[in-house]
Amino acid sequence: MSDSTRSIRDPFAAGKRTYERLVWGLVLVGCLALVAGIVAEARLAGTASYLVTVWAAMAVAFGYPYVSDVTLLDERDAEIHDRASGLTITAVCVATLSVVPALYVLDAGGYATIGATLWGVIYAVSALGLLYGACYTVVSRRR
């Protein structure tokens, strides 16, 4: 049975490609609405549009696989996600561990000053590391 025939019979039988396009299309619309709101000086409307469309995208992303008859995500997607997540956390850790301690020392010695923006980045990266550690502990204890 072709995808188009199946889609007519069952609205929840769209293929993986349609699912991905729908999710990322909604995210794109939300981002465009946000930018349009900034440009048109209608920030509240832009922000509201962004939140509604991005929440809709999340609802589709997490909810659609449960109601669809078609396999949208499988073990290969999970492996790709795991590898990408691992690569991200490794890159962040390497960048952080190689730079932040040196910045602390230079700041303490008066050779450099860590600005407010950089402190924000350091706090965000530290929070990400702590979140990863917490998630890792929970996942490893469940396996």
Partner: peptide
């Protein structure tokens, strides 16, 4: 085939092209 074994068409394609090693279950 993907529908028969419960995965996406892309996964079958990746296995056939030897770009992905399936789990023991698959």
């Amino acid at each position: 085939l993907a529908e028969e074994v419960g995965v996406t068409r892309q996964t079958i394609n990746a296995i056939e092209r030897e770009r992905y090693d399936p789990s023991l279950e698959l």
